[in-house]
Design a protein around this nucleic acid. Structure first.
Ligand SMILES: [Mn+2]
Ligand SMILES: [Mn+2]
Ligand SMILES: [Zn+2]
Ligand SMILES: [Zn+2]
Lengths: 146, 146
DNA sequence: ATTATTATTGAGATACATTCTCAATGGAGC
DNA sequence: GCTCCATTGAGAATGTATCTCAATAATAAT
């Protein structure tokens, strides 16, 4: 069991919930990669590894993972959302290729700072934010030129 | 007929399409306010004013308005999207109140610049972007304290 | 003017991601 | 064992958006 899954177990038990095999398998799946997985991909992977976790349980457990703070839900636009774990993964935003679907990450601390100032100016208390840049990734740019 | 609707008519005709009463009424509705309207709100408003435009036509016409450049479609997260007209409305991003749904606008030219640099660094060609900050608007912050 | 061609529309069907319902399951504690 | 209650899975329901296709309306041709 991965260390992040251990932490999730602690979270679940502290909350007075049961650390079931379904919850464990969803967590292990999410913590197994740094990719940006959507719920359906998690479900498919689980099915292929013999887990019998249902769609409803996958969604419910992803919500718990987000609540635990170990996983972040990101909005990739047009109704798509994805999950990624946060351990050793400082906050960042995303470049989304509208051709191949690739999601790249970028970090720009000054943007974060400017967002805070914008909120102060407006008397707005920020809880979270979503910044996506849509366009052509380097690979797809080349593919078109060729 | 509003000047923006005139421009839309020109766009439609230049494209070799017909400027029908349905298309006109959707355009007039969108140009009648600076609010962030979603498609369903446009449909409801049209119904209340006696227009018989159907849901399909509303969506189709909103797409045409976006294509014309006179209207922008914005992604407000969690699958919600809204439309706003662009005339005399320079680019800006949004503060979305998760309590009352209010959408405020803010402008931060330096953020735009930093996004461009981030793209250059990644070899990414940006087409558009979406930046939303979620949280509590000033009004809702006060309401809770009271 | 009549006919043929084409664009547009509305109603409902369909798609899709997500949430909800509720009966069945299965630990936890007695 | 039995009771209690959290959890689960299957499928129904939701909400947003798109698609299908026959009917309608506009345009062009004869
Ligand atoms: Mn990421
Ligand atoms: Mn706006
Ligand atoms: Zn790409
Ligand atoms: Zn508010």
């Amino acid at each position: 069991m991965r260390p992040e899954t251990q932490q999730f177990m602690k979270f679940i038990e502290t909350k007075g919930l049961l650390f079931t095999t379904e919850r464990k398998s969803v967590a292990e799946e999410v913590f197994s990669t740094h990719d940006h997985l959507d719920a359906e991909e998690v479900l498919k992977k689980l099915k292929s590894t013999g887990s019998k976790a249902s769609r409803a349980t996958v969604y419910r457990t992803l919500d718990l993972l987000v609540e635990s703070g170990l996983v972040e839900k990101i909005d990739l636009g047009e109704g798509r959302s994805a999950y990624e774990h946060t351990a050793g993964h400082p906050h960042h935003d995303h470049l989304v290729c509208t051709v191949c679907g690739e999601v790249q990450e970028f970090e720009e601390p000054l943007i974060e700072q400017l967002q805070e100032w914008a909120c102060e100016k407006a008397g707005f208390r920020a809880i979270g934010h979503s910044l996506n840049i849509y366009g052509w990734c380097a690979k797809c740019k080349l593919a078109v030129k060729a």
